[in-house]
């Protein structure tokens, strides 16, 4: 266990350094701030009651940017090591493939979480500067998003072992952004084609649900704090479902020829 932690720490440190030295984060940060500022600029035209609109734009931008960044960061963890051939000196160390997979998941999660926290805090600062406040539910929004990032990283890393990086990024983005539509699509299928509710419910349960981790609309409309057991249940979902994704990835990776 100590050894696995040591391996994870080494990989996370290197991953964080790499991310901070790449330009992705700064581009995303500038874009988000520009979008929020752009939304608030409607005040110039005397439009009243913009708070909800500006908050909506800001949180939507954070959500979209975080999801794209998370998918890109997680999707490159193992394939990039293979492409650069640095997987060889990495796996030439006394580490198991399971430890590498876990370390890479932790790296992606920590890096994407750091990016999200920077984005969220900077945008919050900008909103407060503009005189737009948020309720304490913002804390729950951040915590739930962090859980979602961990879960999304597990899914993307697992898929990266089964398909090419381009296919993985495309599918992951479809699954992440489209997950909110699954329920509606299945309901439509139920109404239009009279499909069995049991099978549709099963399918709904099996499909990945990144949408479960989004509380942004509740922040926008100033809801009160959600019961903490809801967050506990979401943590359970993230651990179980994310664990299943990682297990699926490990089943493929443990016997895969490297390079």
């Amino acid at each position: 266990m100590t050894r696995t932690l040591q391996i994870t720490r080494a990989l996370v440190t290197a991953g964080l350094l790499e991310t901070l030295r790449r330009k992705d984060l700064y581009v995303v940060l500038i874009l988000t701030l520009l979008l929020t500022l752009g939304a608030s600029a409607f005040r110039v035209f005397g439009v009243q009651g913009l708070e909800i609109f500006v908050k909506d734009v800001a949180l939507t931008a954070i959500g979209v940017m975080t999801t794209v960044l998370t998918v890109l960061i997680a999707a490159r963890q193992i394939p990039e090591e293979m492409q650069r051939r640095t997987i060889y000196p990495l796996m030439a160390r006394p580490i198991t493939r399971g430890q590498l997979l876990l370390g890479k998941w932790a790296t992606a999660t920590m890096t994407a979480s750091l990016c999200f926290v920077i984005l969220a805090l900077t945008t919050l600062g900008l909103l407060l500067t503009l005189g737009i406040g948020v309720k304490p539910i913002f804390v729950q929004y951040v915590l739930l998003k962090l859980l979602g990032i961990g879960w999304l990283c597990a899914m993307v890393i697992a898929l990266s072992l089964y398909m090419t990086p381009a296919a993985n990024v495309t599918l992951s983005l479809i699954l992440a952004f489209g997950s909110g539509l699954f329920g509606r699509l299945l309901l439509m299928a139920h109404w239009e084609h009279d499909l069995s509710a049991l099978w549709l419910n099963l399918l709904y349960g099996v499909l990945p649900h990144y949408d479960y981790f989004d509380m942004s609309k509740k922040v926008v409309f100033d809801w009160d704090l959600a019961p903490w057991w809801v967050l506990g249940a979401m943590a359970g979902y993230a651990v179980l479902n994310g664990g299943a994704w990682l297990l699926m990835g490990w089943l493929r990776f443990r016997k895969q020829t490297i390079g």
Partner: peptide, 8 residues
Amino acid sequence: TALYSPYL
């Protein structure tokens, strides 16, 4: 041949 991380 190994291209060590360009950002380290």
